[in-house]
């Protein structure tokens, strides 16, 4: 494993606003769910819904 003193992906996530952090997790979930489809049609609407849900 790389040394922990390096700037890590976790540091990047920690620097996000709480809303953005929730959105980042949601985006990864949606992308992973549709990763097996070449041109998925449900990813963009899924993320749009997630953003709208977070910014009500």
């Amino acid at each position: 494993m790389p040394p922990t003193s390096q700037y890590t992906a976790r540091d990047v996530l920690n620097e996000l606003s709480p809303e953005a952090r929730k959105l980042a997790q949601k985006v990864i979930q949606i992308e992973n769910k549709h990763l097996d489809v070449q041109n998925p049609t449900q990813v963009v609407p899924g993320i749009v819904d997630a953003v709208k849900g977070l910014t009500k």
Binding site: M1, P2, A9, V12, L13, S17, A20, L23, A24, V27
Partner: peptide
């Protein structure tokens, strides 16, 4: 404006993570 800014914030973070993780995995 707020929603798009939120997307931009995540986009920037993912770009950084992509670079960091690629390098981290390369080192491993």
């Amino acid at each position: 404006q707020h929603q798009v800014s939120l997307i931009d914030e995540v986009l920037d973070a993912f770009k950084k993570i992509r670079v960091l993780k690629t390098e981290e995995v390369r080192q491993q």
